[in-house]
Design a protein around this nucleic acid. Structure first.
Length: 103
DNA sequence: TGGGTGACTAAGT
DNA sequence: CACTTAGCCACCC
């Protein structure tokens, strides 16, 4: 049994909690922040503990929120004033150039 | 120990 | 910029 706060999941949660409103991190950046390259691992933690976290502040490298959750995320972006950009197909995504954040 | 899964990413078309 | 394909890595049988 590993010490609490020392496992992969706990590290991911700790990083996500530091993201301020209006800013975002990509799955890959969160992984890098804890010395890992497992963006998918971060996704698995979010699926397990996302409901207790500002999950909308963690997006894909393309600036898109997790699949099936785009609508819910968009409402938070509107409230927090997160910088957005519109893609060629009309899809709204986070402007990583302006919203990217690192702990 | 081995194989499948997924809230991903980078590179090519 | 959008779509496809192969690669990665933590987690769970």
């Amino acid at each position: 049994m590993s010490p609490a706060g020392d496992d992969f999941a706990s590290r991911v949660v700790a990083v996500v909690e530091t993201i301020p409103p209006g800013r975002v991190m990509t799955y890959g950046s969160v992984a890098a922040a804890i010395g890992s390259r497992s963006s998918r691992g971060v996704g698995q933690v979010m699926a397990w503990a996302g409901s207790d976290l500002p999950w909308w502040r963690v997006v894909r490298a393309s600036g898109l929120p997790p699949e099936r959750h785009e609508q819910r995320a968009l409402e938070h972006y509107r409230v927090e004033g997160t910088p957005l950009r519109q893609g060629r197909t009309g899809v709204l995504r986070v402007d990583l150039e302006r919203a990217a954040w690192s702990p």
